[in-house]
Design a protein around this nucleic acid. Sequence first.
DNA 1: CTTCATTGGGGAGTGCCACTATCCAAGCAT
DNA 2: ATGCTTGGATAGTGGCACTCCCCAATGAAG
Lengths: 214, 214
Amino acid sequence: MRLAELSERSGVSTATIKYYLREGLLAPGRQVNTTTADYDEEHLRRLRLIRAMIQVGRVPVATVKEVLGHVDDDSLPRAMRLGAAVWALPQVPEPDADDEFVQGARVAMEGLLKTLGWSNAQAMTTISPSFRSLVVATAALRRLGYDWNPETLVPYARLMRQVAELDMEFMESHVSEAEKAEVAVLGVVLVEPMLQALHRLAQEEESTRRYGFE
Amino acid sequence: MRLAELSERSGVSTATIKYYLREGLLAPGRQVNTTTADYDEEHLRRLRLIRAMIQVGRVPVATVKEVLGHVDDDSLPRAMRLGAAVWALPQVPEPDADDEFVQGARVAMEGLLKTLGWSNAQAMTTISPSFRSLVVATAALRRLGYDWNPETLVPYARLMRQVAELDMEFMESHVSEAEKAEVAVLGVVLVEPMLQALHRLAQEEESTRRYGFE
DNA sequence: CTTCATTGGGGAGTGCCACTATCCAAGCAT
DNA sequence: ATGCTTGGATAGTGGCACTCCCCAATGAAG
């Protein structure tokens, strides 16, 4: 198919597709001649994935490129491809290491992982960007005066562990080996917004149940 | 305290504080004379909340203003203040109502709420921006060919309901009546990034447990 | 064969956002 | 009196995600 058809079937303007091609998010089509390039179903699928990441997942264009690079990196074993792709997703900015709240939050969150007995806690605390997000958010809460400590978070963490188990089951039940990395990315990029939406709906529901509309 | 001290104690530059004052995010200090204004602890606290929303929660400045407006709106009963504040938080853009995937996803998600028996399902499906996010993410998944249906989401929703119960318990146990709206905002703005981080850590953990590093 | 709209490519421009830099006059400190 | 600091206002910056416009080559219509 040609650019115009790719645009029509994806709902993305040709100008935007050209932009993605220039940025290297989308592989160029097969060049038929100087003024014609041919795109296939794989391009369409990839383009939809890109749009999902950008529009639903709010992932910046440069990050999408990085994540897709990991997804496509055949030189890594699968588990590492997944990890690399997820770690490339946007996180909170690097905190000020000298800040006392950040230091305290870091110690508390290391304790949390230990309490949970999560096996690769060592690797997590040193390098995982998710761990950093956790520390930054905890520090912000404490700066506001809430005694947000590991005990508060343990039940949350156990629930999220159950969520992760659901993720893995979905991945195993529906997907061919070749697509697993893509599904892992979808698992964070699309499922997280859904979790967030469900969380807010559940809050409304629970709040109404407890307090009505007073 | 003066602007310089407010800046020092919050870690926010004077230029940025002036910007927030101009944008109406922060109430002006008590004007002592033409060149001096006096700020109190409440300003500091509010400034930290603003920073947490912007930096940790990635909430746009204009939205922060809107959310704080609802938090401070004494004319509304509490439950509505909370709802209004949370609903003002950024969500996914409005989907194309004619899109077949969007229509299908909407029907599926209405079914989900019915299955869950969430009591105010009627109000949710018609107006809640969270419901819209859910529809948009589901449509994106289906467009990519995954048979993402209400049954898949039910266990996720039940887990998020448990999370919401934890939120409410935290809110009730720690906080004076006057601060409840602020805590509700924090509950989505700061707790959601933490949930997200815990989700990703749990995925790493669960993935490692199941597959090792192959 | 000529005309003419269309195509892919590429550079430059746009609009928005979150600051940030500069300027200014009034005050206060020495 | 001098010079630094303050709050207030205006304009500018840099990044991002497009979006516009122009071009030469092409393919389709008459």
